[in-house]
């Protein structure tokens, strides 16, 4: 399992993807970079349309659908309509159907460890981003401690990319910066300190932090520096 991940590189590849099939390629790349067994992304929108991609074997996907595991899979029942990330150890595997499912999943190479991130998007959209692997508890805990934050971010950026391909989707304004965010990013790009930006715009530094965070997420960036670079390269701010 990888210790250090170049998340920036992954986000660039993801952003450059212009087809739904492309997301499948990216998910395989991400799996390889993290050096884990599997990553799966699955979404359901407000009218029940589904889409999924991932690295499970075709046999397991077929078996999963044939057996109707969607109804008994503790990962699904434990994450559906929720929004906190879950280590599979915290799910309820005690029922007979869950144990049957687990045995089958292990035999199909899903892995004995898993971490799932439920995502709540616009208009009642729900998605699930899951990583799984075969290793002991200690190794897994170390891995999730180190990477869960990046994985949450990655999950949401995957989701946003998938939303781009939603049929009949209404164009949303959510990724253009608001005037206030443009002001903040422009001043930061000009080399102003946070305190100076806050003072110039007559807002508190805490308010500033929220504006930077919302701009960062819109821009699909990892941190403030990254966000400024992206805003400039897209011509959203001019310095």
């Amino acid at each position: 399992m990888a210790n250090r991940i170049n998340l920036d590189k992954i986000l660039k590849i993801l952003e450059a993807t212009s087809t739904l099939e492309g997301i499948q390629d990216v998910i395989e790349k991400v799996r390889d970079l993290f050096e884990i067994d599997h990553i799966v992304y699955h979404w359901v929108d407000s009218v029940g349309e589904q889409y999924g991609c991932g690295t499970y074997s075709p046999e397991w996907v077929k078996r999963y659908l044939e057996q109707g595991y969607l109804r008994t899979d503790p990962v699904i029942t434990g994450c559906f309509q929720r929004f906190h990330p879950v280590d599979w150890k915290r799910l309820d595997w005690t029922s007979k159907s869950a144990r049957v499912f687990l045995k089958d999943a292990l035999e199909h190479g899903v892995g004995n460890q898993g971490y799932s991130i439920p995502i709540r998007g616009p208009n009642g959209q729900f998605a699930l981003f899951t990583i799984s692997h075969n290793c002991d508890d200690e190794t897994w805990e170390k891995f999730t401690d180190r990477h869960s934050r990046d994985l949450i971010l990655l999950a949401h950026y995957f989701n946003r990319k998938a939303l781009d391909f939603e049929p009949n989707r209404t164009p949303e304004q959510s990724r253009t910066l608001s005037p206030r965010e443009v002001d903040v990013m422009t001043l930061l790009a000009m080399g102003y300190s946070r305190a100076q930006v806050a003072e110039t715009l007559s807002i508190s530094e805490h308010t500033l932090r929220v504006y930077v965070e919302s701009a960062r997420f819109k821009l699909g960036a990892l941190n403030t520096t990254h966000a400024i670079a992206r805003a400039m390269s897209r011509g959203l701010i001019v310095v």
Partner: peptide, 23 residues
């Protein structure tokens, strides 16, 4: 990242910036 009161009802109080982040 989903529907929330601060953005839908009190959006005008946050400088017109919708607050949206997984964190």
């Amino acid at each position: 990242t989903g529907r929330v009161m601060v953005n839908e009802i009190f959006g005008h109080l946050t400088g017109g910036v919708p607050i949206c982040s997984p964190f």
